[in-house]
Amino acid sequence: MRDREHKEVMGKSNLMIKLRELLLEEDRINQEKLTNEVQLLKDEFNTRSKLEHKIDPIIEDHLDKLKTDFPTLFGPVITETIKYQIKHSQDEVVDALYPIIGKLIRKYIAREIEMLSEKVDAQLDIAFSWKGWINRFKAWFSGSKETDIVFQGVAEPVIEEIFVIEQNSGLLYGSYSRNKTMDQDMIAGMLTAIKSFVVEAFKSGEQELESIEYESYHILFKSFKKYFLAVAVSGTITASFKDKLDGTVLNFANKLRKQAQEVNNTDTDVFSGYLEQYFKEINK
């Protein structure tokens, strides 16, 4: 009986063990799986490259979203801040912007007119254009170039100052000025220095400095052997103005050559007289 009982118990416990084994086996496998997965995760987490691989797309996604949504997300805040700043420091803002904008606009307009003028020039060059001919006739009869008719009164070129300056020494032979603002001798010296500087700095050799431009001013240089002319012009330089100026410069140079024997060529007053006589015409 005992034996039977024992057997029974044994059978029961065997069953239990089997059962447990069965149950635990599944657990064990599960646990092993889990451990493996945790290990894998740990690995991924600790290896930057592997992590990046996973996270980057997410971040990128967010960044893209931020980029496209930035104006709506932060726009109002930034606008408010700037608005506030401008409102509460108006004078500073105006002070800072005014000269820049003024210069920009002036330069821009002068440039635009120059370009437009050139475009019109090109158009008028279409030789058999009927309109071109009509314009040309108009110009012939009124004595000015067709392009100039279109832009009459807009930033007309005006000779502000002319200097006749001895080469090298930079001494002033004579000058003509609409409104003498600075010392003419000093300007003559500085213009000579700029000219020398350009020749030497850019190793231009025989090449000469032809013009300097600043804002809506131009300084045109015309070189002769003993002296050069520097002509300061405000406004937009048109081709016809250039033509007229070149012609006058040559006439003037001729006059000087012819009179070279009679005129003491360092007499500034005589020089200045000639200059006025020759160049006042252009400004009319």
Partner: peptide
């Protein structure tokens, strides 16, 4: 007599001055 005085920068290793500034001096 009008003296037109050219104050020319002293040369050093970094700054070379165009010789032309000296030309025509009296």
């Amino acid at each position: 007599l009008s003296l037109i005085i050219w104050d020319i920068a002293g040369e050093n290793a970094r700054q070379k001055v165009p010789q032309a500034y000296k030309m025509g001096a009296h």
